[in-house]
Write a protein that binds this DNA or RNA. Sequence first.
DNA 1: CGTGTTCGTTAGAAGTTATAACTCTTCAAA
DNA 2: TTTGAAGAGTTATAACTTCTAACGAACACG
Lengths: 227, 227
Amino acid sequence: MGEAGTRTPRERYRAQVQEEVKQHAWAQIATAGASALSLNAIAKQMGMSGPALYRYFANRDELITELVKDAYRSLADTFAARAEAGTDLDGLAHALRGWALDDPQRYFLVYGTPVPGYQAPEDTTRTAGEIMAHLLDACAAEEPPAGHPSAEEPPAASRPLDGHLDDYRAWAGEHPAPPSALRRALAFWTRLHGVLSLELAGHFTGMGFDPAELYADEVRALAGRWA
Amino acid sequence: MGEAGTRTPRERYRAQVQEEVKQHAWAQIATAGASALSLNAIAKQMGMSGPALYRYFANRDELITELVKDAYRSLADTFAARAEAGTDLDGLAHALRGWALDDPQRYFLVYGTPVPGYQAPEDTTRTAGEIMAHLLDACAAEEPPAGHPSAEEPPAASRPLDGHLDDYRAWAGEHPAPPSALRRALAFWTRLHGVLSLELAGHFTGMGFDPAELYADEVRALAGRWA
DNA sequence: CGTGTTCGTTAGAAGTTATAACTCTTCAAA
DNA sequence: TTTGAAGAGTTATAACTTCTAACGAACACG
């Protein structure tokens, strides 16, 4: 095998410790949120004293940034794996919800409340492009039934956004998809995020309906087919 | 006027100080996020020393909770004011976006990343019901054009969620609205939140389209009319 | 005009991030 | 194999934070 892994035993050990730190960090975030993440507590859990962790992460923000990057990568990988088994919007939607429910705080680390000053590293924007590319692939492959009376796609001339999307196709790295696919991908993203984030934040609790059904409804509407 | 205001001068002063504290808190949150809110810094800004603020708020969480309650109330009032001028979904959507853009961090305090342990106070759930009631009013009043070919409402029999909504109408305090209105209100909420939260979080930056257009498109789709 | 509630203070405990300086291990090259 | 440099982990410390406790001073009210 190509030695893509770590070379020297030092780097090997270093990567291993970093991974363990991140593991504990995820556990903390899952139970108390990202704002409550404590380097000191992690160090104590690992049996070493506070400042030792600064050998591995420059500061708290760098650790969190690394977690954000991992979260993005995790979603991209999930989409990639699902795309292997055929590019369908349904599958992508299902994969997205599964990924989100698997660790809500990980979802919020990507799509949740932003810190005003914080600028996402170049790395994540590239991964975000990957994610969007999978989505665009699926949208381009699955053209909705055109003449269906209950299809939700409006007549082409009446969508003001399409012109914009056509002009600025910098979108997702010059992905070769028609404007309609861009529009649908955007709707997929925003609508499913809308349902998902409200569900994960607990805004549906006590309302007496199944969020999964609402999610499925939105997926059906996006696919242009109603049951 | 009914003396709904504070009675004694002590209570008057107390309320005034509390209001000033919240003012500074909002300023801090707007520039650095809620997690960076510092009671000490607020006290210093107000010219008094740290622990003085504990006369007015039991702890940091209580201050934040108060801000959350105020944010909910602010949105409910915004909706109420807009409803005075006629109950239309378009107006409500516009009011929502204006309210959100006016102070993004206030929006995220309501609809952003939740703290795992945190339980919203009874007060906010009631205000949330108020907000939903305005939405339901508008949805019930504005029945979409039925036979329109590009209407997005699917045939009644094929919407699995409606049954649920009909069973559990605990939703929004027994609001007298038909299931279709409930369904539309839910879509209004989730879809506009989807676009809005992604916009406010900066996920559209660099994509080269106008979020306002995307938002308007979603509003049009919800109203069942395409330009 | 007392008198008691309330406000603001300082002191301090316990926690956090982060830096500096020092020791000890470990690795690698001569 | 020996030796020396790089890296890991340690303590000490500074500068924060939230929050409690005890004290003094101001103020409203009977």
